[in-house]
Computed example of a mutant assay.
Amino acid sequence: MTFKLPEFTPPDFNQSFLKNAPNCTTIEVIKDGVAPKNFHAMSIYPEYFKVDGKWLLPAQSRMDCVPVVKNNTIIEIIEFRNLHVGDKVVVGRTEDASEGIYMYTKGFKSENKINDTFAFRTGRSRETAFSKDYDQLYERLKHDRDNGHIVWVLGPAVIFDHDTRNALSSLVENGYVHALMAGNAMATHDLEGGYLGTALGQDIYTQASQPNGHYNHLELINEVRRSGSIENFISEGKVKDGVIKKCVEKNIPIVLAGSIRDDGPLPPVYGNAYEAQDAMRAQTRKATTVICLATTLHTIATGNMTPSYTIVDNKIRPVYIYNVDIAEFAVNKLGDRGSLEVTTIVTNVQDFMVHLKNNLI
């Protein structure tokens, strides 16, 4: 299979309803962090705004944030908490161009359009055949390794298995990981595996519980905190292998968002949720493919801040999001939160990772 990015077809702005549409209306912010009444909130889809007679598309977008007109030439998408007095926020709740706001959902042609009114197995579940999804993912990752930004969002299940952990480490080594986002647990147990050969006290290969193994992750966290940073701890030669070690060696950004239940935590874990969100947002702004594995809350957070498109080399291209989990509930949850442009695969992450490694390396 030869991978080719789908062409983006922009709207025909000569259509009368677009040509004759009014300019969008803006109202200035009068209190930091507070949008004006009737503010417009973004979706995941490309949205155009008419300013001085020209339709402008934001270069970067984010669902549930507000569009701000800058110098009448660009549209920036801003989180409510980052609004400042004087920002010109677009107001209006329609998306049909009647208020100078146009949401456009037909830029990329669907490869799987179904014309039948009734058809079997159009949903995605444990009965779905995912062979085509895997084949497409292999080709997209090969393309984006050198032409995009591949972001991985990981739960700790990814490193509880010897083969899975090695598979992901190999993908890091071979350039298929450009950023890693997770919580304290994933990084802790991966480093525990490289330091003590266990994950949450169980042998990383046999899963046999070790004597006093419940201390192991705490010992690991304590030692990393003693060293001052993950990088220092690794440089001391105390970590034999693992995903985090590979990322550090390759200078790959690692964003660890904290939780109310964290042990320790590791030194780089963000305790402030909004700082964590900003750090995650820095990676999703650049993302071309996002792969979320066995972590429902991190997946929803990432999916909600990742638009359906991005602009690379002045070309509009889709952002591909994959959500992989053994539970149908987990993969369907992201769609329930507004991120419709996502491919879901119902399987355990161990099989998923080994498939990827075997077909990419």
Rank of each mutant, 00 (worst) to 15 (best):
V243Y: 11
V243P: 02
K245D: 08
K245I: 03
K245E: 08
K246W: 05
C247I: 09
V248L: 01
V248A: 04
E249K: 12
K250Q: 13
I252S: 06
I252Y: 13
P253K: 00
I254E: 06
V255G: 01
A257D: 07
S259K: 01
R261G: 03
D262P: 06
D262Q: 00
D262M: 01
D263G: 01
G264K: 10
P267N: 10
P267E: 12
P268S: 05
P268R: 01
P268M: 03
Y270L: 08
N272D: 15
N272E: 10
E275R: 14
E275S: 07
A279V: 10
M280N: 15
R281G: 08
R281N: 13
A282Y: 02
Q283K: 14
T284R: 13
R285G: 00
A287M: 09
T288P: 08
T288D: 02
I291M: 10
C292N: 15
C292H: 00
C292D: 09
L293R: 12
T296K: 12
T296A: 11
L297T: 12
T299R: 11
T302Y: 07
G303W: 12
M305A: 03
Y309T: 14
T310A: 07
I311N: 04
V312M: 13
V312F: 07
K315F: 00
K315V: 06
I316F: 04
I316G: 02
I316C: 04
P318H: 07
V319F: 03
V319Q: 09
Y320D: 10
I321G: 01
Y322F: 15
V324I: 15
D325R: 08
I326M: 14
E328R: 00
E328N: 13
